[in-house]
Nucleic acid binder design. Structure first.
Lengths: 261, 261
DNA sequence: TACAAAAGTTTCACTCTCGCGAACACACTC
DNA sequence: GAGTGTGTTCGCGAGAGTGAAACTTTTGTA
């Protein structure tokens, strides 16, 4: 009931104190280290309130206090690696991703959907030359990357619409598809040919190709993606050789999930 | 009513709702996926209470709901990689750690102190054969690892005691030093010779050597550590060749921090 | 060194949130 | 269709969380 205009997303089903703590952490993650006063100002909270949140979060390891203020703690790294390693797809896909990266000499990504975002769970690079837009842990919109489109293409129209309602269709570059109908047409093409392409949509000068990893019922659990500079990964190479290699790896991973889990 | 009878101001300056959320997350991290009922039981909370926390945490990306219950979300990976990369020591130390790993053909670790724990911030391996006890993100007690002892040896006795009071001296193996006086004697030796040794204390069959990374005032900001199987990293090799290599790398990192930051 | 200004910490009263228990809905098994 | 296990909603009261202000410490500056 602060100065907030009624339309709050905060129904009775949320814990507001937790949301406030989370907001402090998000601010620090996005803006780097900050002092108590700065945080209080930016989050529109009283200093005393922020003070108690900081104490609580520091005690738990979510924060550390350093010379230049509070910063997010390495506890996130501990939890994050644990989350990565224990993801249902990780063990099955990692060796196949490694092998593919070795063979094609480009970066190969393992991507999963979570909370309506594409999450880059793992990467192996054949050669460490190309500096990519993403990094392990990166969360981006599904519609803006080939890895995300490969996943969306295996969902029902209702499921896709639910995600789009939740996260929107922001433009990452001028090439990003921001229209729903155009996106659904693209997803149709993707589903038909079995792989998704990404031609300088989100990353200038970078191309990519992705195929979904699916459960036995067809629902997508993630995707694998080969990405690199456009001059090396030109469209004909993607469509001919790389698509076959990726579809082969997809099959290996799906078999591995089925019989080794 | 009187109003002020029970107002205990001795109550800690913490946000209890946040602590409850954090407790749920810790339970899931340590025990793997769990259902609402299971979490409520294990954390001694009402189902309705846990329900609201789960909703809040899922909305923020800290959790996801899957077939086998709630699990911690990949948002931790996003924050964790960000925390790793933005650590003051990371940029300066990473290239030197990589170079050292290449040269000696063993795993080289970058370790920092945080919240009274040793945190394994980064690792590079010359050859991927030896399966180590730790992993990136791992948090362990400072007294139980050579990397931690290298850090402790550069702190004042008061600072060390404060950490020991906070985290205790649990035994990781039978060789772990669990007595304060014995630890201080070991830290004296470590400080004198400039490096810390770890001879099968915490990891059976595994040896390690560590040197601190220090600020200009001498205070430790972290340490670097070479670890591997005892038969390859025998004591004389550690003390002669490896110690010199590590001390050289230490100097490079400290210079890099000083003049490139 | 002294002083001012800003940052951090503690206090305190008020109010709304949080947590609980109970009721409810829904999916399973037998 | 009774029974047991989920997850969800409801309503209430206690007390936790909040902000304003007082207070203390640190930082910056003259």
């Amino acid at each position: 009931m602060d100065g907030r205009t009624g339309r709050g997303n905060d129904g009775p089903n949320y814990v507001e104190a937790t949301q406030k703590s989370i907001g402090v952490l998000r601010f620090l993650k996005e803006n780097g280290p900050a002092t108590l006063s700065k945080i209080a100002e930016e989050t529109d909270s009283a200093k005393s309130t922020v003070y108690r949140h900081l104490r609580t979060l520091e005690d738990a390891g979510y924060l550390v206090e350093t010379d230049d203020g509070y910063r997010i703690g390495q506890l996130y790294l501990d939890y994050g690696i644990e989350a990565q390693r224990s993801h249902p797809l990780y063990d099955a896909a990692k060796p196949k991703v490694d092998a593919l990266a070795e063979k094609v000499g480009e970066k190969v990504w393992l991507v999963v959907e979570e909370n309506g975002y594409a999450v880059y769970l793992y990467m192996q690079s054949g050669e460490e030359l190309y500096r990519s837009f993403t990094r392990v842990g990166y969360r981006g919109h599904l519609h803006a990357f080939s890895a995300g489109k490969a996943i969306l293409a295996q969902l029902s129209k209702n499921e896709v619409n639910a995600i789009l309602d939740r996260r929107g269709l922001p433009a990452y570059t001028e090439e990003t598809i921001t229209d729903r109908d155009a996106l659904f047409a693209e997803l149709d093409r993707t589903r038909q040919r079995g792989y998704a392409l990404h031609l300088e949509e989100a990353v200038d000068g970078g191309n990519a190709i992705s195929v979904p990893i699916q459960r036995e019922d067809g629902s997508p659990i993630g995707s694998i993606c080969v990405a690199g500079p456009a001059h090396r990964l030109n469209e004909s190479y993607l469509r001919s050789e790389l698509s076959d290699l990726l579809l082969g790896t997809k099959n290996e991973i799906e078999l591995s999930m089925r019989y080794e889990a």
